[in-house]
Design a protein around this nucleic acid. Sequence first.
DNA 1: ATATCCAGCGTTTTT
DNA 2: CGCTGGATAT
Length: 757
Amino acid sequence: MQNLLHNLNPEQLAAVTLPAQPALILAGAGSGKTRVLTTRIAWLVQTGQVSPTGILAVTFTNKAAKEMLSRLSAMLPINTRGMWIGTFHGLCNRLLRAHYRDAGLPQTFQILDSADQLSMIKRLLKALNVDDEKYPPRNLMYFINGAKDQGLRAKDVEAHDEYNRRFVELYDAYDNQCQREGVVDFAELLLRSYELLSRNQPLREHYQSRFRHILVDEFQDTNNLQYNWLKLMAGEHNAVFAVGDDDQSIYAFRGANVGNMVAFEREFRVQNLIKLEQNYRSHGHILDTANTLIANNSKRLGKNLRTDAGHGEPVRIYEASSDIQEAQWIIEEAKSLINEGALRSEVAILYRSNAQSRVIEHALFTAGIPYRVYGGQRFFERAEIKHAIAYLQLMDNPHNDSAFLRVVNFPTRGIGARSIEQLQDASRQYGISLYAAVPYVAGKAGSSLGSFVKLVEAMRFETQNLPLQEMVKVMLDMSGLIPHYQTEKEGADRIENLEQLVSAAMLFVSEEGFGIDSPAFLGPKAQATAGTPLPNGDEVIDADAPLPTVMSPLSAFLSHASLEAGDNQAQAGQDALQLMTVHSAKGLEFDAVFITGLEEGLFPHENSAKEEGGMEEERRLMYVAITRAKKRLYMSFSQTRMLHGQTRYNMKSRFFDELPEGALKWLSPKLQHHWFGNKKSAWDDAPESGVNTIAQSFVRKDVGWRIGETVAHQKFGEGVIVNIEGSGTNSRAHINFGRHGMKLLDLNIAKLERVGG
DNA sequence: ATATCCAGCGTTTTT
DNA sequence: CGCTGGATAT
């Protein structure tokens, strides 16, 4: 135990060893948050205060859960089985699998990912003859998910007008359809288990008496439903240990509610509030920069990071003439960092929106520097994998209409739109799944559909009692997917991925313990004598009953495929520069970080101005970006940028005005906007020549002002001339005043001053 | 049933 | 600019 606690600072130690009471840990960036969480669990177990089965630890991502698990097994001699450590969704899935009957779900219920959900909604709208111009599927999806995240069923949603009433109706119809098909979306996993626990008292009390300690990671990211779920699990007596950082709350747009931190403090009457402000990641100037910036936010719980590391290097700021030139500068700097011995994987290039990566990628590609872009397509999201998964889904639950439609005619087997229409009519008429409706379709369509049903049934029959990876192999053989892709020109990669699916299944079996000697493979009879009672309504059984009794390996694998879509970074393996959005950088750290495109409209993003609290969220995002850097931080912005096919002239980000001058070093002379003045500007010697010539073509000498020029206005401050129209006494200019927005000013009336010229 | 064209659109994302 | 999805042509 001494080992466990040594090397903790006083605040960390205090947090780790708090009594079994509600606690809120405000953990700043790089303050050892994960360490505190895992050490707390290890300490509780090791001091005998709680058995491993009494621990419930919740995270948002699978990555975080895995990290916690692996650190724990390094700390504790005992195995971590029996602890519930996972994502909200993963844990809810576990709960629902164990108590599927009480939850009103079929044993083989399947999980829709966002793409499945959207296609299901589209299908529903079509079936109900709803105008999808008036009710866009995407909006309906947001509506449904938003309501579920608030814990609201269709009947609970208040609609104030006809339009919204229709949304509510469609929400209800959607839920009914899901129930018919035996599928649940992500939000449903949470809502369903929330409802299960709240109406089933014995079950609730069972879990409440089990989980004495509930630990929550990234608490600032919880939505209202998750918060209420936690409240239910905690009951009156369990100790909730919430760790979070309000300054790093950047997911309001998807329902996260920072207010949960304050609510938690109040509702749980938190007596133990500990701030972790000692930062072990960044050098002083970087930290000062972060602190000074975030101090501009008014809604904060209050926290100031400190470091023992010394000032370190100043934060370098660079003004580029164009996005292309910005990219070239980044690459030059990155090159010299690497020459100085930096690892490529320790250098990150961050941007606000994905579209910005293109220019940077292009430059990196040309320069032949290995790089890796995060946020690409994930393994289980690939089309060929989705098709294979759909076959597996049909084998496990043939009433999944989405899966049915995806592969009924893939590879093509002569089942066209007309056959499907007939089938959908029948399914609607009898209120049954497409699969079940097949016998009701007559004629040629009926017979080709019939042979598809026979195929699925043959797959089920052939794979009975086979290990999971063999099931996948048989499915691949019988489906005809591989021959189909063999005839495609780009099919080789797809076939390779399909083969990887077999490996994924194998890996899953070995990791999750669905091995060959697990009861699942002993067949139904052996299972019945294995002595584990099946869950039913009369008896509370714990979700720790050996999983195969509640979930077949196939069901488990399909859950895994939906809940953990796989790696989302390309070209893993080699040492490469790291490119990603600021959002995906959260939780990571790098020796050197570039924050790029720091311009009004981009970062802070223009849309954030419209939203309540939007600007503060952008500032937190900037805070997250800054605090990713350990030793060296660069920030850059550009005077012109190609966005959506047109050139934009942006002001530099307002965030520059909120940084401590003493910690900064401007690499380019300030105020270089006089492109066409007498002085030679810094980038006249730049390797590319596009910008000046393009801009020059817009010079309007007759009105005395130039496009791209920075001007100052008494009321609006500094702005950039974006366009000039008219001439002489009738000339007006569109000027981008950044935070004051775009203005159209009469050049003969407005009193403008040149800036820097 | 597949290829090709064009209109429309464009913040952030995990499960 | 570059992608997606719907509509049309072969």
